[in-house]
Amino acid sequence: MPEQATHVDIASAYAELDPLSAKVGFKRVDSLPHAEATTPAPQGTALWSATYARLLLWPCPGSDATTVEASAQAGQRWFDEVLVEGERRSGGRPLDGYLVLALPEAPQDDAREDIRRLELSTQVCRKHLIWPPAPDDPDRHIVCWRRVAEVTVLGFPDIGAEAVPSGELYWPEIDTEAMALWEELNAIGVPAAVSRDTNA
């Protein structure tokens, strides 16, 4: 794992992301994969992996719009290679990607609109921003990072281990009437069943 970034307490971000990630089937990888991207992963970068997705924590050195945009682009390029390689290794099964930019402080007011646009973009992966609470934040003693719960894949309610996604496909249980219809569709085909029902 890369050394801890000096501009933020990145270890506290790991501590917040680890348990939430585990609840939805993610595990933090021991070492980052090699990527040929022009920008190397910054110090403190961490990757969580699941059968269906990857989550990347990418430290950002500033909270102004220009720095956030540049970090997002660099992280996205690096992450794209990781996702493509992961899909190749899984036999072409698509992987969702979640890029979490760790800002040193809340975004500057003039950056809010650009940041909203960035978070709405789904190019390559979903993008989210988190930051530590301000010194005057009344919740600073109980919340290490703001907006972690808004990371789409992690923001689910506490639903228990039985809902953790897996790579297995399961056939849903259906009632006898639905099963009879399914067997009929398999026996005579969809066009014949539609034609019969239309003429009935």
Rank of each mutant, 00 (worst) to 15 (best):
C60F: 03
S166N: 06
G155F: 01
R88Q: 14
G160M: 05
W48C: 02
P19A: 13
L181P: 00
W78R: 10
T152S: 13
D109C: 03
A13P: 00
E69F: 12
I142G: 07
P59K: 11
E150C: 06
V194S: 04
S90E: 11
P157H: 14
A13G: 06
L47S: 04
G44P: 00
L32V: 06
Q123I: 13
L83H: 02
H128E: 07
V153S: 03
Q73Y: 10
A50V: 00
A102S: 10
I188Y: 04
L101W: 06
D136F: 07
E177V: 12
W58K: 04
G44Q: 08
E173C: 05
D158W: 02
W48E: 02
A74Y: 02
D64T: 07
W78M: 06
E85F: 05
L99N: 12
E69N: 13
E36T: 15
A163C: 09
E105K: 15
H128C: 06
E36L: 13
L154M: 02
F26C: 07
D30L: 06
A134L: 02
I130K: 04
V190G: 01
V84D: 08
E173K: 15
D30R: 11
R116I: 13
G189L: 02
T66E: 14
D30N: 10
D110K: 12
M179R: 15
M1N: 11
I130T: 01
D110I: 06
V24H: 01
C125S: 15
V24R: 05
R77W: 01
D109W: 10
E69V: 10
K23W: 01
V8L: 12
P132N: 02
E168Y: 03
L129P: 01
W131E: 06
A65E: 06
N199F: 13
T45Y: 00
A53G: 06
L154K: 06
E168C: 00
E150A: 14
G91W: 08
L99R: 14
P40E: 04
D64S: 05
A187P: 01
P94I: 10
C60R: 07
Q43A: 11
V190N: 03
A41M: 02
P135K: 11
V164T: 15
T152M: 07
T67R: 09
L20P: 00
D158P: 00
P2C: 12
A50C: 04
A187G: 07
W145S: 01
S90Y: 02
E173W: 05
K27S: 08
P191Y: 10
D136Y: 09
A15N: 08
L32K: 07
A37R: 03
R112W: 01
T122G: 08
F156L: 12
L95P: 03
A106R: 14
F79K: 08
L99G: 10
M179C: 05
V164S: 08
R54K: 12
G86L: 05
P133T: 11
D175C: 03
L120S: 14
T51V: 07
E183W: 11
D109V: 12
P40H: 08
D96C: 10
T67V: 12
G91V: 12
E105T: 11
I10P: 00
S71W: 01
F26E: 02
P157T: 12
A193Q: 07
